[in-house]
Design a binder for these strands. Structure first.
Lengths: 238, 238
DNA sequence: ATATAATGTTTTGTATACAAAGAACATGGA
DNA sequence: TCCATGTTCTTTGTATACAAAACATTATAT
């Protein structure tokens, strides 16, 4: 908290209320798995840990609750939301529809400069993938930036917001499945195919690839849940 | 608030925190247009009006903020969000994709009983439409229930949640465009066609109709904004 | 008369206080 | 030993207090 508070005081023009700092911080911790599903979020504990009072903690929790990352049990406080396999598949299903919409719009609206930017991001991503000891979290960031360029190309802010939110829901698992080197190579190939389709303004082809892309994520994540997830789920029964 | 507090105390099993009562109440007022776009939401005023302290008001506002119905200006408090035509069209575009997904899934999953229920809801809706002096708000409720049956038929809870949220964004305008009797008749016909397609399990046809359905809403709402909206927007420059 | 400085008021942001509901634990009885 | 019951402790839900920022208003100087 000290560091964030510092930033906050150093940049008075981008003032950010404590609740927002707390919100972003808790969210990051949940998405990174530092706060595990089922874990209790106790206000006083968090307040002490972050060096603020309960008020901003509570307000941050309200937003996390609305976002679905936190579940409230009446009179028993906040818990990090569990994600069942069913919910994850539900999210992916919705995401697939919206990714198709996004790539369709992007295909019709992206400028040549946008596509260039996309290729730049992709090269950065591919470079990281080649490194054997690449940090999966960092890899995730680059993948994110690639997709952000496409999202921006849609010109539909609500679509961007929802897609970002859906992607967040899977962040926790993405780190897991990005450990698989085979998955990484597939990602690079798919990104490349997407760029080529966008360059040719071939909407049908772009839609085809992005659908494959999501289906692969579907498989990868479910595979990760099958193997890695089993013990973890049992280990955290709450 | 007295009434709500009363309910809350009468039904101790469905205990609801004050913040939740406030949240639902403010949301309803925003969606119904009782709180107009741009209007300031001042904490003390609301607290006095609703007979609670600032704390639950603030927590309710956090959720409204996250939902996009309220916009925060740092150190200047909460305002009811304006909706631009662009945003409205963005919402509709996303909704169209997801309604197509929903009807596709529903077509494959709904039981015959579900379809019967759908027809029941539709008959209730149609009956109301025939009444000349039907209350647009009540009509909206029936339309909502019709679509709820379809949404439930998808078996995808995340999809349901997002669709409900998107629909909410347009609630404010729906009341306007439901005043048009021609629109009402069209709605009935479309609902009927949807049911027929679902009965035949004709996914392609169902998708076709639901797309038309959304496109019509698109036109109706934009028409309402062209005529009715002009003065209202100017009248509320805030 | 206009611009500007000073002052007071309102409103937000944050912290703290207090009551009540639940959970945990210990004590006593079968 | 196991269960029931009462007591304590923790934690939430709500209210209030206080400081600082924004805003309005008045007074002052040019």
């Amino acid at each position: 908290m000290t560091a964030d508070n510092h930033d906050r005081l150093l940049n008075p023009e981008e003032y950010m209320p404590l609740r927002e700092v707390v919100f972003l911080r808790l969210r990051r911790q949940i998405l990174r798995g530092e706060l595990k599903p089922g874990e209790r979020l106790m206000e006083i504990g968090l307040a002490n840990r972050l060096g603020v009072s309960r008020t901003p903690i509570r307000e941050a929790i309200r937003k996390l609750e609305h976002e679905g990352l936190v579940v409230m049990i009446p009179r028993r406080g906040a818990h990090v939301a569990e994600i069942t396999r069913q919910e994850l598949n539900d999210v992916l299903e919705v995401r697939k529809s919206l990714e198709v919409l996004a790539i369709t719009k992007a295909c019709g609206r992206m400028t040549d400069e946008d596509v260039d930017e996309l290729r730049t991001e992709e090269q950065a991503f591919a470079a990281r993938v080649r490194e054997q000891d690449a940090d999966p979290a960092a890899l995730g960031q680059f993948d994110e930036r690639f997709h952000d360029v496409i999202y921006r190309g849609t010109g539909n802010r609500r679509l961007i917001q929802i897609l970002n939110n859906l992607r967040e829901q899977m962040y926790r698992f993405r780190v897991e499945y990005l450990k698989d080197t085979e998955v990484r190579e597939t990602l690079v190939k798919e990104h490349d195919a997407i760029i080529k389709a966008l360059e040719k303004r071939d909407t049908a082809e772009a839609v085809r690839i992005i659908s494959l892309h999501i289906d692969n994520q579907f498989r990868s994540i479910n595979r990760a849940l099958d193997t890695d997830g089993e013990e973890a789920e049992d280990g955290q029964p709450q």
